[in-house]
Amino acid sequence: MKSAPFEHHEPTTVDEAVSLLESLDDPTILAGGQSLVPMLRFRLANPDVVVDINGIDSLDYLREEDGHLRVGALARHADVAESDVIDEKYGSFADAAPLVADPQIRNRGTVVGSVAQADPKGDWGSVLLAHEGEVVARGPDGERAIPAEEFFLLPYDTTLGEDELITEVRVPTPSPNEGSAYHKLKRKTGDYAMAGVGVRLTFNDDGTIESAGIGMTAVDITNARATDAEEHLEGERPSPDLFAAAGELAAEQSNPESDEHGGADYKARMVDVLTQRALGDAAERAGTVTVKRRVTQ
């Protein structure tokens, strides 16, 4: 498979990139390229102009700063998987990163690129939704932060402007009473999710849930929030029954379609299962509960 010809622009600063996006006719942004390059090779995408942002060194970062975890547009999945700060405090990111594709793809593919791609089967959108994160974009009129919830419109379609470049995604730094997790079901390594669920639980000092965030993968036209389940959890004390009820609500709110990754009913049931599992992990990571199995296996 061979791409059609295109013009290749390699800006080295965000300003340069933004002005290219503004001046060029229908440009396509190339970051990690792990989804885009196959589309180019199949000629499913035939852009005349490609703006390759890999040379913008200032976007290659992953750090905690100003009350946020900030993931720059050139941070690769592998950077997340290998980060100590992620390992320590961001359970959902630590869970999700090694579940993305395979090692080589994690070395090239970027978190921001995955979010920008807006594939409902992508993992990072759900993590962002669970954490009530933001997508930071730069355009000709300057920078704006788009709440994750307002970012995804349709499969492969977002509220990003045509002349805007995502410079980072960010989530608030967790409080000490917070835990998060991401669970994903897939048929094999390298396959997209049959279903995935990211959760964040923030606890009050009395052990009740202050707030919950739940993002779902591959079960709607975009990554989607399970708001009913979130509301049901708030103010409550964790218990298997509570989490089961939340799982049920998330499943009800999901809207999966039957496809090669499984039937719609199955996916909805798995939203339930994965939500319960992820809630258990998040609660454990927050130091609130210890999950015990009644019998071996």
Partner: peptide, 9 residues
């Protein structure tokens, strides 16, 4: 269901 065999401490 996950809750089937699970207890929280």
């Amino acid at each position: 269901q996950p809750a089937h065999n699970v207890e929280f401490d």
